[in-house]
Every structure is written in structure tokens, then in C-alpha cells.
Nucleic acid binder design. Structure first.
Length: 332
DNA sequence: CGGGCCAA
DNA sequence: TTGGCCCGG
């Protein structure tokens, strides 16, 4: 079964790491700001990591997956409690050009599922965990229950017509949100002025959240936004994963600085339709009519969903409801 | 992942 | 207080 937009932890998005310079920030500096969270990105992480020792998801007695909700509940309650407003942006239909990436991710998941089965037979615990994480899939049930949960706690849910990264970029550009929150860099290619990464590890001293400012990145590199997109396309994106052979950040940067964009692609030996890909970053379909308004938590809806339907312990749920109420009263 | 518990 | 470990459904 192939799911639209199939997610993968590895080989996802564009690897701009070697081109960007992050700034460590204090989580307190995000207070009263709204972050546009890449929902699929975050849910995928929960599905990868929140597992039983045998690699299986956590589920209700009748088999509904709960791993994602088990991740979302403390996560959202915690961030809201710190005065950080959230808006979750969900992917819509992926562009045609993403087909190849989606198929290869799906194939890799099937491979991982086989290896997981083998590891289970061999009783290799560490292997089980490793391969199980790679089999994570955002099924329609997982997406729907995530949206329903977020709506119950009062967090805005925005449905992107196509890629969430493009929608997110629009929301940051228009000023409704301060930054995008994601582990990958693609929203910068779609033109988001700011990106926050590693929000999750915010409580640890080791690696706090980092902020990337598009304008600063472009200034530092001495290039335009289109030129950054061009380099990314050369290095490989979801819309053409291989990119151009032999082109990494170093050569890509040199090429766009010494040539205009068409010539840079020509010199690099590009043999695919780079302009179509560039068009996806410059002009993807987005929804202009959205709200990022934080609403009060609907406690009864939260209880019904989490306790009755998803078999969460009453204590856990009541504790988080208290946090959510506090958060809304303080910062909403 | 994030929380809670406990040992050092 | 800090950190390692287990648990959550």
C-alpha cells in the first residue's frame, strides 16, 4: 500500500546542512510566537521512535495505533505551556514529480519490514528497533486522529493543498507565524524567512533549538534565493533525488556564483528539467484562507478521545488537560 | 519522544 | 540535582 506523500526519516528533503549556519536560541525567545509545525515530519518521528521493545507500535486493545498521540500529547502541552503558539500544517497531494521519491521510500519500507521480520525471528532486539523505525507510515487513520486531537486541544490545523513546506513558507511570509518548525530544510527553499529546528531537544543543555534565517543564509553565501534553490536542485531534492552527479554544496555554490542560473545548470551537465523543479519551489499551490488562532482546549472532547477511544490513563490525560488550560489562560 | 522513578 | 532506565496503550 502506497500512501500519498510517503514519509521517510532518511533521505528526506534536501540536505542543505553544509550551506547553512544555524544560530542556537533559547526556547524562551519563542514565547508568544507562533510556529508553523510540519505535521507529517513530527508525526513520523513519533511513529519511528515510540515503540514497544519488539518494534511494534503502541496500540489500543482493538489495534488502533496510539504512538503518535502518545508523542503529541506531552509535546504540544509542553510547548504551549512555555507560551509557544503552534499551528500544525498537514501535507496535501504531492506534486507529480515526487512520485519517484515516494515509490523508493515505499520500497525501502518494504525492505525494512522484511528485515524486521528476520530480526524478530532471530530475537535481535537492537535490530528490531532499528528496522521497525524505518517501517513507520502515516496512514489515513493516523493523520485523521492527529488532526482530531489537535483540534480538541485548540491548536489550529491547516490543510495544505500540496506540500506543507510551501504552505508553511507562506504562513511565515505573511506574518501569521514567526517560523516554520521542522527537521528538514525544504521550507527555506519554498521561501520561509525563518526555520526552527531541534525544538524537541529544547530541554537538554547539549543541543538546544536552532534558528535559521533565510536572509542571513543568503547574505552569508552571497547568493539569491533562486540561486540557493538551484544549488539544492543540483545536489538533489525530493523532486529529483539524484541531482547532478558530482555536484555537492561546494561546486554548486561556485557554479551559481560564476554563472547565471541556466548557464550554471548547463555547465554542471544537467540532463533533466530543472526549471520544472524550480517552479515547484517558487510557485507551489498554497491556501491563503487559513487561521492560526489558538482556541481553548475542549476538555470533554480530549477525554472522550484519549481516555474512552484510545485507552489513555485518566491520570495522564487529566494532568495534561490542566497544563493545557493553564497555558491557554496564560498565553492564549 | 517525554515523564516519572530511583539510585548515586 | 543528575542521569540511567522503564513505561506509555
Amino acid at each position: 500500500m502506497l500512501y500519498p506523500g510517503e514519509w521517510s526519516g532518511k533521505n528526506m528533503g534536501t540536505n542543505l546542512r553544509k550551506l547553512v549556519t544555524p544560530t542556537e536560541i533559547d526556547i524562551a525567545s519563542l514565547r508568544h510566537k507562533t510556529l508553523a509545525v510540519d505535521a507529517h515530519n513530527q508525526i513520523y518521528q513519533f511513529l519511528s521512535v515510540i515503540r514497544q521493545p519488539d518494534g511494534e507500535y503502541l496500540r489500543t486493545s482493538d489495534g488502533k495505533v496510539t504512538s503518535h498521540l502518545l508523542g503529541l500529547l506531552p509535546r504540544t502541552a509542553n510547548l504551549l505551556n512555555r507560551g509557544i503558539k503552534l499551528a500544525y500544517v498537514f501535507d496535501g497531494l504531492p506534486p507529480q514529480l515526487k512520485e519517484q521519491t515516494i515509490r523508493s521510500r515505499s520500497d525501502r519500507k518494504s525492505d525494512a519490514a522484511e528485515k524486521l521480520a528476520q530480526a524478530k525471528e532471530a530475537g535481535a532486539t537492537a535490530e528490531m528497533k532499528k528496522y521497525a523505525a524505518r517501517t513507520a507510515r502515516l496512514t489515513p487513520e493516523i493523520i485523521d486522529s492527529s488532526k482530531r486531537f489537535l483540534e480538541a486541544i485548540g491548536v489550529p490545523v491547516i490543510q495544505a493543498p500540496s506540500e506543507a513546506d510551501a504552505q508553511t513558507a507562506l504562513m511565515v511570509q505573511k506574518g501569521g507565524c514567526y517560523a516554520a518548525a521542522s527537521t528538514d530544510y525544504d521550507t527555506l527553499l519554498h521561501g520561509s524567512p525563518r526555520l526552527v529546528r531541534r525544538l524537541s531537544k529544547s530541554q537538554r543543555a547539549t543541543s538546544g533549538p536552532e534558528l535559521l534565517v533565510l536572509e542571513d543564509i543568503l547574505d552569508t553565501l552571497g547568493i539569491s534565493h533562486d540561486e540557493l534553490i538551484a544549488i539544492a536542485i543540483m545536489m538533489g531534492t525530493d523532486y529529483h533525488p539524484r541531482g547532478i552527479r558530482g555536484i555537492g554544496p561546494r561546486r554548486g555554490l561556485k557554479l551559481v556564483k560564476q554563472n547565471d542560473i541556466p548557464k550554471a545548470f548547463d555547465r554542471a551537465g544537467c540532463d533533466f528539467d530543472w526549471q520544472a523543479i524550480m517552479g515547484l519551489y517558487q510557485d507551489m499551490e498554497t491556501e491563503e484562507d487559513y487561521s492560526v488562532l489558538w482556541e481553548p482546549p475542549n476538555n470533554e472532547a480530549i477525554r472522550v478521545m484519549l481516555v474512552d477511544e484510545y485507552e489513555f490513563s485518566e491520570d495522564t490525560v487529566e494532568k495534561r488537560i490542566d497544563e493545557l488550560e493553564d497555558a491557554y489562560e496564560q498565553f492564549g
